[in-house]
Amino acid sequence: MLHYLLKRLLSLAVSLVVASLVIFLALEVVPGDPAAYMLGINAQEDTLAALREELGLNGSVVERYLSWAGGLLQGDFGTSYTYRTPVAEMIGERLWISLPLALYALTLSTLIAFPAGIWAASKRGSPVDVTVMGVTQLGVAIPNFWFAMLMVLVFAINLRWFSAGGFVGWDAGFLLAMKSLTLPAIALALPQASILARVMRSSLLDTLSEDFIRTARAKGLSKRQALWRHALRNALIPVLTIIGLQFSFLLAGAIIIENVFFLPGLGRLVFQSISARDLIVVESVVMLLVFAVIVVNFLVDLAYAIVDPRLRGRR
C-alpha cells in the first residue's frame, strides 16, 4: 500500500511540473512578448518597457519560469495587471464560491445518481428502470444553462423561494449562503447526476452478471443481499472515475452557470481576465485548476486502492 501511495505521489508531482511547464510555455513564450500581447497593438514603446520591467520579463525564459514557479510554491501568484490587486487574494475570494458550489453540486449529483442507478439496476427492465433511463436521457440532453433559466423563472420569479442570482456571502450565515448556491448547484448537478446514474446502473448490471454473484446466490444470499454485499463495491471503480472527472469539470466548467446566476466564481474570473488580456490572472487560475484536477485524480487513485485490494499489491 505504501509503495502504491508513493508511486501515486510521485506521479502527482511529475504531472504538476509538466503541467506548469506547458502552461508557462503556451501563455508566456509561444505567443511572443507577453507585454505586447497584454497592451495591444497600439502600445507605446516606453509603456511596454515599463510593463516588461514590472512583470520581470527581461530575464531569460528559464529564469522567468523558475521565479514564476517559485512564487506559486510560496503562494505568490503575482499582481493582476487590470485590477492591481494580488492574484492570490482574487482567487481566494472566488474559490470560496466555486469550491463550495462544486462540492454542493457533486454531493447532489451523487445523492441522486447512486439510488437511481442502484434502483434501476436491481429492477432491470421494470417500469422503474425504464423511467430512470428515460429521465437521465433527458438530463444528459438538456443544456444546463437552459435548465438554469427555467429554474430562475419558476423558483425565483414566480414562486419567489430563491433569489434570481448573486451570492449573499458567507458572512450572511452558512444557511443563507448555501441557499443562494442551491439553484446553481441543482443546474450543475442535473446533467452530472444523469451521467453518473447511467454509469452506476450499467456498471452494476455488468457486475451482477459476474460469476461470483451466482456463487453468492448459491450460498443462500438473496438477490438484494448479493447486490449490496458483493456487487456494489465491485461496481464502484468506473463510478469513481466519472466522479473524479466531474469534480474537475464542476470546478472549472461552471462559467456559463456562474454567468446565469451572477456568481463571482472562478469561471467568471477566467472569462473576464481573458477579455481583459490579463495574462497573469489567466495563468494562475489555469494553474490552480490543473492543480485541482491532478489532486482530485490522486484522491480517486487512493479511493481505487481502498475499494480494490488488487491495487494495493501482493504481500
Binding site: 459476474e210 460469476d211 461470483f212 456463487t215 458483493h230 475499494v307 480494490d308 485490494p309 488488487r310
Partner: peptide, 13 residues
C-alpha cells in the same frame, strides 16, 4: 454448489 470457472467464481475484493 461448485462451479466451472474458479478464476471468476470468487468476489475479487
Amino acid at each position: 454448489m461448485v462451479f466451472q470457472e474458479p478464476m471468476t467464481a470468487l468476489n475479487p475484493i
